[in-house]
Amino acid sequence: MQNIVKEKKNNSFTKKNLLITAGIILGFLVVMYLAEGNLLNRQYKSLIVPIGIYIILAVSLNLTTGFLGELSLGHAGFMAIGAYTGALITLNLNMPEAVEFIIALIVGGFIAAIFGVLIGVPVLRLKGDYLAIVTLAFNEIIRSIINFLGITGGAMGLSKIPRYTNYIWVYILVVLTIVIITNLVNSRHGRAISAIRDNYVAAESIGLKVSKYKVMAFVIAAFFAGIAGVLYGHNLSVLKPADFDYNKSIEILVIVVLGGMGSVRGSVIAAAVLTILPEVLRAADDFRMLLYAVVLIAMMLFNSSGIRTKLEESGKLPKLPKLTRNRAK
């Protein structure tokens, strides 16, 4: 019989894993060269950190949208929680930079994750369009509460946040995010999540606890959004509630959609492209929004209206994975 399933060794020291490790180190050297060398001017160097932050945001949102198949329009809300938590920690602690920042990152991620549970448990009972709208509502609720509270500086926001974020921190966290989410997706937990996306009735029938795995995916995504928020705050040094409105959530969604739902690699590439493109085009913010709109509409029409199927059948386009959830009746 042909050996369809690849034999896997029983430990982590496979050839593939060694190659990946080598790739990660090589990648770091490249990023270091770009950040420190003379190849890029200051304007482009300043994009390295935001690209990394958007990669973390997009890869984590892809877990909810691409793998769990639920549209979350509240990712910026979790990012805000992480950003404010992290900023308040480094503003109030008097510890060495590295210690303070690590605490901020971890706590920021965890508080966002806790909110992920609080919001996820009720919200994930809903499906489809309703779920999307409620996550949007929570995004707005979080933002107006931050706007209202004294500790977060109200509408003025927080300023003088130490600029701890640099390309090294970002690179480490980007790698960690990608590795953890990719590993998760290819594990028993990840299979449960994808199974729920494909058919939740069948998923229940084979003994999967649907709500548990939905919440799990949602919370893990929230955790990484929180970390991205901490990085974001310590990069800009100022935070305002208005930074985390629903447009920010959509911005992250645009990256996921462009990169392809359910594709981690796609999210990484799209995050880079969509951060660099407006800079290269030197376009005003007005055009950035137009670009997002066109990406969303064009991608959906291309993927789902049958244009792609036609192209694929005529052989003009290689077959690619597709969107998966069926319209709820």
Binding site: V5, R191, S194, R197, D198, N199, A202, S205, G262
Partner: peptide, 11 residues
């Protein structure tokens, strides 16, 4: 009701 976008093995 299969998990359509998953492989046969993963199902």
């Amino acid at each position: 009701r299969l998990f359509k976008k998953m492989t046969v093995l993963d199902n």
